[in-house]
């Protein structure tokens, strides 16, 4: 065998061993790579499925977003229109506010005028009230004066009546005295039982009380007393009427019954007309 052939055999053997090792390692690595590749392919398939799902969800979401976007655009359009309406309303309201401000200022001026007018009326009312008070005080004073004058007139009327009665009694007394004088001239003697005034004297210790007060149509006052002929009372006897405060009037017996009599008031003390009432004491002498 040639030496070259031997060298070639050795080189071929060495290369064969090296190729075998390389082939083993390469085959094992390729197998691992294939397994890895298979796993990756499966993962890619799963990932693709997930991606498809996500894409479908994204598509649905996109559609819903598109619909929502269209709705939002419609709402935006409506809001823009509403905004325009509100702006016009706002401008109109601002104009109204301005007009109301003007009206308020006008009303304030009118209120000031009304206040001034009311103050004027208040002053007038106060003056009228003062004047009315003065008039009322004057009217009251006049009424008081009228009352005083009426009282004075009544007093004077009472005095006049007393004077009239006194005058009439004096006239009667004059007539009686003239008659007595004539009788005395005719008989030559006077009546012993009559008093100096022409009236009979009441019995000594005579005492009675008034039971009724009447008014004579002629104007004189008649009194009914609880004593009569049983008490030795006779017509034309003079009696005195006494009240709680003392002497009130003088009276003359007009009509005598058994237990009662009617007397006529001849003299009434001034200012004591109203004290003639039931219960007054009737005395023969004071």
């Amino acid at each position: 065998m040639h030496a070259l052939t031997k060298v070639l055999v050795v080189i071929g053997a060495f290369l064969s061993v090296l190729l075998a090792g390389l082939s083993v390692a390469y085959t094992a690595n390729v197998d691992s790579v294939r397994d890895e590749y298979s796993q990756l392919k499966k993962q890619i398939t799963v990932a693709n499925a997930l991606v498809d799902d996500v894409n479908q969800q994204a598509a649905a979401q996109r559609e819903s977003n598109v619909a929502e976007t269209s709705d939002l655009r419609n709402q935006t359009t409506q809001l823009i229109a509403e905004l325009a309406g509100l702006q016009s309303e706002n401008s109109r309201l601002q104009a109204d506010v301005a007009s109301l401000h003007q009206a308020a200022s006008l009303h304030a001026a009118q209120i000031d005028q009304f206040l001034a007018t009311s103050e004027t009326y208040a002053e007038l009312n106060s003056k009228q009230s003062q004047e009315l008070g003065m008039l009322r005080s004057k009217e009251l004073e006049g009424a008081r004066r009228e009352i005083a004058l009426s009282d004075r007139i009544n007093e004077l009327e009472g005095r006049l009546e007393v004077s009239i009665e006194t005058s009439r009694s004096l006239q009667e007394r004059i007539v009686d005295l003239r008659e007595e004088l004539e009788y005395a001239k005719q008989d030559g003697s006077g009546t012993q039982i009559q008093s100096d005034t022409g009236f009979l004297k009441a019995p000594v210790g005579f005492r009675a009380s008034v039971t009724d007060v009447r008014r004579d149509p002629a104007g004189s006052t008649l009194l009914e007393i609880n004593a009569g002929s049983s008490d030795n009372l006779r017509e034309n006897m003079k009696l005195n009427i006494v009240g709680e405060s003392g002497y009130i009037a003088s009276a003359v017996v007009q009509l005598v019954d058994d237990n009662s009599a009617i007397v006529r008031v001849t003299v009434l003390k001034a200012g004591r007309e109203n004290e003639l009432r039931e219960g007054n004491i009737v005395l023969g002498t004071l």
Partner: peptide
């Protein structure tokens, strides 16, 4: 055979 072996060696070398 030497020639064939040389060719085989070349092929092995290329394969390696």
């Amino acid at each position: 055979y030497t020639g064939l072996l040389a060719v085989a060696v070349l092929c092995l070398l290329a394969a390696v």
